[in-house]
C-alpha cells in the first residue's frame, strides 16, 4: 500500500506541484522586489527625516545660543540701568540744594545708602591742614590732626585719584589711622584736591569688597562732591 493510499490523500502530481511552487516563487520574488523598493523609499524618507531633525536641532541650538546671548545682554542692560539710576539719584542728592549742611547730608546718604559703608569721614582743607567736616559711624578724634602729606591720604591728595583697598597699592608707610581705611576719594575742583572722603568699614553683606557700581560712584563723588561743597560755600559767602 502506497503512502497516499494509507493517508487517504490523492496522489501528488509532481509537475502540477512544481508549477504551483514556481508560481509561488515568482510571486514571492515580486513581493520581495516590492518590499525592497518600499524599504528603499522608507530609507530615503528616514534619511530625509534625519536631515530635518539635524536641521531642527541646529536651529534649536542656534535659538538657545541666541537666547543665552539675549539674557546676557539683558543682564548687562539691567546693570547699566542700575548704574544710571545710582548716578542719577546720587547726582540729585548732591545737587538738590546749595545749603552746605544739605550737601553734606547728601554725601552721607550716598555713602550709607548707595555704597553701603557704615563708617565715613569727610576731610576738607582748612588753611594748611585738613579738618573733619562731617562723619558717621566712627570717632573723628584720631582724624582731626592727620598730616595731609603722608600715607594713603597724602597720595590721594597729591595724585587726585581714588585709592581703593585691594585694587590699589598702599604707600610703603601708611599712617596708623589708615589701618581700617577701605577707600579714599579726593574731592576735586578743577583737578585740585580740596579734601577727601575716607571710607572705612563696609556693611557685612558687602563681604569687604566694593562693586563696579561703587567704583563708578567713587568717580562721581571725586568729580562732583568737591564742586557741590564749593558751590555751597560760595553761596553762603555771597548771601
Amino acid at each position: 500500500m502506497t503512502a497516499e493510499a494509507a493517508t487517504g490523500r490523492a496522489p501528488r502530481d509532481p509537475a502540477a506541484e512544481a508549477e504551483t511552487l514556481r508560481v509561488q516563487l515568482a510571486s514571492l520574488r515580486q513581493e520581495r522586489e516590492r518590499l525592497s523598493a518600499e524599504l528603499g523609499g522608507l530609507r530615503d524618507e528616514l534619511t530625509r527625516h534625519r536631515s530635518v531633525a539635524t536641521q531642527l536641532q541646529d536651529q534649536l541650538d542656534a535659538i538657545a545660543r541666541e537666547n543665552e546671548a539675549l539674557m546676557q545682554r539683558q543682564a548687562e542692560i539691567d546693570e547699566q540701568q542700575n548704574s544710571m539710576a545710582n548716578l542719577y539719584v546720587a547726582s540729585f542728592s548732591l545737587h538738590a540744594s546749595v545749603d552746605r549742611e544739605a550737601v553734606l547730608a547728601g554725601i552721607q546718604e550716598i555713602v550709607a545708602n548707595l555704597i553701603g559703608c557704615e563708617e565715613m569721614a569727610l576731610l576738607q582743607r582748612s588753611d594748611t591742614r585738613l579738618a573733619v567736616t562731617t562723619f558717621f559711624g566712627l570717632d573723628p578724634a584720631p582724624l582731626q590732626a592727620v598730616d595731609p602729606t603722608r600715607g594713603v591720604l597724602g597720595q590721594c591728595l597729591r595724585g587726585g585719584s581714588t585709592w581703593v583697598r585691594g585694587r590699589d597699592e598702599a604707600p610703603a608707610t601708611p599712617e596708623p589711622w589708615e589701618a581700617g581705611l577701605t577707600a579714599c576719594i579726593p574731592l576735586l575742583v578743577d583737578g585740585n584736591a580740596t579734601g577727601a572722603l575716607a571710607l572705612f568699614r563696609l556693611l557685612p553683606q558687602k563681604c569687604g569688597a566694593y562693586s563696579s557700581l561703587d567704583h563708578e560712584m567713587f568717580d562721581f563723588l571725586a568729580s562732583r562732591a568737591g564742586v557741590a561743597l564749593l558751590c555751597a560755600d560760595l553761596c553762603r559767602r555771597s548771601a
Binding site: Q81, N82, A85, N86, Y88, V89, A90, F92, S93, A96, G106, E109, I110, A112, N113, L114
Partner: peptide, 15 residues
C-alpha cells in the same frame, strides 16, 4: 526717612 533711598527704590521699581 532717606530721600536718597526712597528715590533709588522708586527708580528701581519704576521699570
Amino acid at each position: 526717612d532717606s530721600s536718597t533711598a526712597l528715590m533709588m527704590n522708586r527708580m528701581l521699581l519704576s521699570k
